[in-house]
Lab assay of single mutants.
Amino acid sequence: AEIMKKTDFDKVASEYTKIGTISTTGEMSPLDAREDLIKKADEKGADVVVLTSGQTENKIHGTADIYKKK
């Protein structure tokens, strides 16, 4: 799966169907969080990951919607 910015995804959204939401939390780098989200998306058969939230304090927390091409 590839990560797309919401603004970029909005241009092609009609080509995809939302298949779920994924999240990651833990003591990790932003890059590790990104890789974890991609891994989870791949496991669910998603083609595209669109980040919906991200937070960093002591731990990273990120959520994303996942989509499959129609």
Rank of each mutant, 00 (worst) to 15 (best):
A1I: 13
A1V: 14
A1Q: 01
E2F: 09
I3P: 02
I3T: 02
I3Q: 01
I3M: 07
I3N: 00
M4R: 02
M4L: 05
K5P: 09
K5T: 15
K5R: 12
K5F: 14
K5I: 10
K6R: 11
K6M: 09
K6I: 07
K6C: 07
T7D: 12
T7K: 12
T7I: 11
T7E: 15
D8C: 09
D8V: 05
F9W: 05
F9I: 01
D10N: 07
K11Q: 08
K11N: 06
V12F: 05
V12L: 07
A13S: 14
A13L: 05
A13M: 07
A13E: 06
A13H: 07
S14Q: 08
S14P: 08
S14R: 09
E15G: 09
E15T: 05
E15V: 04
E15H: 11
E15D: 11
Y16A: 01
Y16G: 01
Y16M: 02
Y16I: 02
Y16S: 02
Y16E: 02
T17Q: 08
T17S: 10
T17E: 13
T17W: 13
K18R: 09
K18D: 02
K18F: 14
K18E: 03
K18W: 15
I19V: 07
I19S: 02
I19K: 01
I19T: 02
G20S: 02
G20W: 01
G20Q: 00
G20R: 00
G20K: 00
T21P: 01
T21H: 06
T21D: 04
T21Y: 05
T21L: 04
I22A: 02
I22D: 03
S23E: 13
S23V: 10
S23L: 08
S23T: 11
T24Q: 06
T24V: 12
T24W: 13
T25L: 09
T25R: 09
T25P: 07
T25S: 14
T25G: 11
G26C: 14
G26F: 09
E27N: 13
E27D: 11
E27V: 13
E27Y: 13
E27T: 12
M28V: 07
M28K: 08
M28I: 06
S29R: 05
S29I: 06
S29E: 08
S29L: 08
S29W: 10
S29P: 06
P30D: 14
L31I: 12
L31Y: 09
L31S: 15
D32E: 14
A33M: 12
A33D: 04
R34Y: 14
R34D: 06
R34Q: 10
R34E: 10
R34C: 14
R34T: 09
R34L: 15
R34I: 15
D36G: 06
L37A: 01
I38F: 03
K39Q: 09
K39A: 08
K40G: 01
K40N: 04
K40W: 07
K40S: 05
A41W: 00
D42N: 15
D42W: 13
D42Y: 12
E43F: 06
E43H: 07
K44T: 04
K44V: 11
K44C: 15
G45Y: 05
G45Q: 05
G45F: 06
G45E: 05
A46P: 00
A46M: 01
A46K: 00
D47P: 00
D47K: 03
D47W: 04
V48F: 01
V48E: 02
V48I: 10
V49W: 00
V49D: 01
V49C: 04
V49R: 01
V49F: 00
V50Q: 01
V50S: 01
V50Y: 04
V50L: 04
L51P: 05
L51C: 13
L51R: 02
L51M: 13
L51I: 15
T52S: 11
T52L: 09
S53V: 10
S53W: 13
S53Y: 10
G54R: 06
G54A: 13
G54M: 15
Q55V: 12
Q55F: 15
Q55A: 11
T56G: 14
T56L: 11
T56Y: 10
T56K: 08
E57M: 12
E57I: 09
E57G: 13
E57D: 12
N58R: 08
N58G: 14
N58S: 12
N58D: 14
N58P: 10
K59W: 15
K59E: 15
K59G: 13
K59F: 15
I60P: 09
I60W: 14
H61Y: 14
H61W: 14
H61V: 15
H61S: 11
H61K: 12
G62N: 12
G62E: 12
G62A: 15
G62F: 15
T63A: 08
A64T: 01
A64L: 05
D65M: 01
D65K: 02
D65Y: 04
I66W: 00
Y67P: 03
Y67I: 03
K68C: 07
K68W: 04
K68T: 05
K68A: 06
K69Q: 04
K69Y: 05
K69C: 08
K69M: 04
K70R: 09
